[in-house]
């Protein structure tokens, strides 16, 4: 008989320590929570509204994790989200000191091993609400590169020169106040802003801005709306550049049971045995070559 394994990730109560409205309908919230295990960039948490008539969690990507060294030693988890419906509006209505349930970290995030091997120029492409998951990736990459010499010698080829990172953040227009761009800049990352209408930064989408600003990217991480991700896949495929993209989909369970959040795959998925992979479990980050978008 099987004994209960240790819980890998369970729902836990989190306390809101900070909430800021970054732009109209876009909120940054810091939660003090015990995440049970280390959160990787690209992973997400399910955030549960306290309203008993709203039964499902809202999948929200992790924008940053820091240890609360001053206080409890718990994790300080930052999420950045847009209010899209009643559930996210309710979550946004909570303030400092309020508590809510979260579950996570969940899913598979951005693979970072490749980034610290032999890459020269890594590009982060964030469209709209894609920026938050890339921010945590940017933080992690920065840390990885600064500690790369201490990484196991056998596992990682020795790096002569640290790769250059450029973050390209796309916004609809200037009303979004280039939210999070300063956080990327604060990490010492070259940050380019593009807006659809040209009201701030370069005019055009993130691919346009990429072509304009970076000559030879050799690794792309992207998160944003589906049409943008399709364009990234197409661009990276044609240019022969490795790309990892983070997908978004409506979820019910968040842990691979309900099969609500599938993404079409090029080959038969080893779990589902059809051409569908679960965004919550196999994703949300996929190799762009593997998804059919």
């Amino acid at each position: 008989m099987v004994n209960m394994q240790d819980n890998i990730s369970i729902k836990s109560k989190a306390r809101i320590t900070e909430k800021t409205e970054l732009a109209d309908g876009i909120y940054s919230m810091t939660l003090c929570a015990d995440l049970c295990s280390k959160a990787e960039p690209g992973q997400f948490v399910m955030v549960y509204p306290n309203n008993g008539a709203k039964l499902l969690g809202r999948p929200i990507c992790i924008a940053s994790v820091k240890k609360d060294t001053a206080d409890s030693g718990e994790d300080l988890l930052r999420i950045v989200f847009r209010t899209v419906g009643d559930g996210t509006r309710e979550i946004a209505s909570y303030g400092e000191g309020d508590r809510l349930f979260i579950e996570g970290p969940l899913g598979h995030g951005y693979p970072t091993d490749e980034a610290i091997s032999d890459r020269k120029h890594i590009v982060l492409l964030g469209g709209g609400l894609g920026a938050p998951s890339l921010l945590y990736l940017a933080e992690s990459l920065t840390v990885l590169m600064n500690t790369e010499s201490t990484v196991a010698e056998n596992a990682v080829p020795k790096i002569q020169e640290k790769p250059h990172i450029t973050a390209i953040l796309g916004y609809r227009d200037c009303s979004l106040k280039h939210f999070l761009a300063d956080d990327f800049r604060g990490l010492g990352i070259n940050t380019v802003i593009a807006t659809d209408d040209g009201s701030e930064g370069l005019k055009g989408n993130v691919i346009d801005a990429l072509k304009e600003t970076v000559k030879e990217p050799d690794l792309i991480y992207a998160c944003g709306p589906l049409p943008m991700l399709s364009a990234v896949k197409k661009y990276a495929g044609a240019a022969g550049i490795k790309a990892y993209i983070s997908m978004e989909e409506r979820m019910a369970c968040g842990v691979g049971v309900c099969l609500g959040c599938v993404a079409k795959t090029v080959k038969e998925d080893p779990h589902s045995h059809v051409k569908n992979a679960r965004v919550c479990t196999e994703g949300p980050v996929f190799d762009a070559d593997e998804v059919d978008i």
């Binding site: 989909e249 409506r250 569908n276």
Partner: peptide, 8 residues
Amino acid sequence: EGNPTPRV
């Protein structure tokens, strides 16, 4: 295969 998304 099931249905297209959104499914839930």
